[in-house]
């Protein structure tokens, strides 16, 4: 049965527990970073951060400061373009697991030429894949495939203290998503679910996607 995530950003406090838990589970080292005047740190996804919480702060016309949080990760697309593009160069470099719907970058991704690896990264509508300069592999969220295969929850979902994330069978998650949407709309009339039909990681946003991140949504 395909799996899905709901990421209800109206609940996210940007504690970044998910971001750190993802690093810890995958044994990824710290990055040297600089103070850039933002809590978004490191500034972007990279081979050591398969998930980052993006911060978007702005002042509305009414003079109200709005601070939106967006825990960014691979959407495990229903029809992943990254897999199509990789297949043209090195079959098996990127695969989609039929059972769970997880999209994985395999060891074979190191065999992609730099140009092909770049093409895979650039094909992604959500700007997710990054290339590890050391291993030459494509790096991205793997849905905690080892955990999920063993019947466990992805570590980011398990760690989230606010219930922002829900993981489970796609049908069940879709039902929860609709319920959460109806609830969110009471406070945020513009609340919506992003690209629900096309992805396994469904974001609930309180307002237009531009107020979160350039690649928050595609459709």
């Amino acid at each position: 049965m395909p799996k899905a995530f709901l990421v209800d950003t109206t609940r996210c406090t940007a504690c970044r527990g998910c971001q750190l838990a993802c690093k810890e589970w995958h044994d990824l080292p710290a990055n040297a970073t600089k103070q850039r005047g933002s809590h978004q740190n490191p500034p972007d996804l990279n081979p050591n951060n398969l998930k980052i919480v993006r911060f978007n702060e702005r002042m509305t016309k009414e003079g109200v400061v709005v601070w939106n949080f967006f825990p960014d990760q691979c959407r495990h697309c229903i029809t992943p373009v990254c897999v199509d593009v990789a297949d043209m160069a090195v079959p098996g470099a990127m695969i989609k697991d039929k059972k769970t719907g997880a999209v994985l970058a395999t060891e074979k991704s190191a065999k992609l030429s730099p140009a092909d690896a770049k093409a895979v990264a650039e094909a992604c509508p959500y700007n997710i894949p990054r290339i590890d300069p050391k291993t030459k592999r494509i790096t991205k969220c793997d849905m905690c495939f080892d955990r999920v295969s063993a019947g466990m929850q992805p570590i980011c979902v398990k760690t989230c203290p606010t219930g922002t994330m829900v993981f489970g069978e796609r049908e069940e998650v879709l039902a929860v998503a609709q319920k959460r949407l109806a609830f969110a709309k009471e406070r945020f009339p513009k609340a919506h679910l992003v690209d629900m039909e096309d992805v396994s990681v469904i974001y609930l946003l309180a307002e237009e996607k531009e107020h979160y991140y350039e690649y928050a949504g595609f459709m």
Partner: peptide
């Protein structure tokens, strides 16, 4: 494409086999 049709069972299994 090929990769999306699930011909890669072995790859996926290899990926899952290392629960730490």
């Amino acid at each position: 494409s090929l990769g999306q049709l699930g011909f890669d069972l072995a790859e996926a299994q290899a990926y899952a086999s290392k629960l730490k």
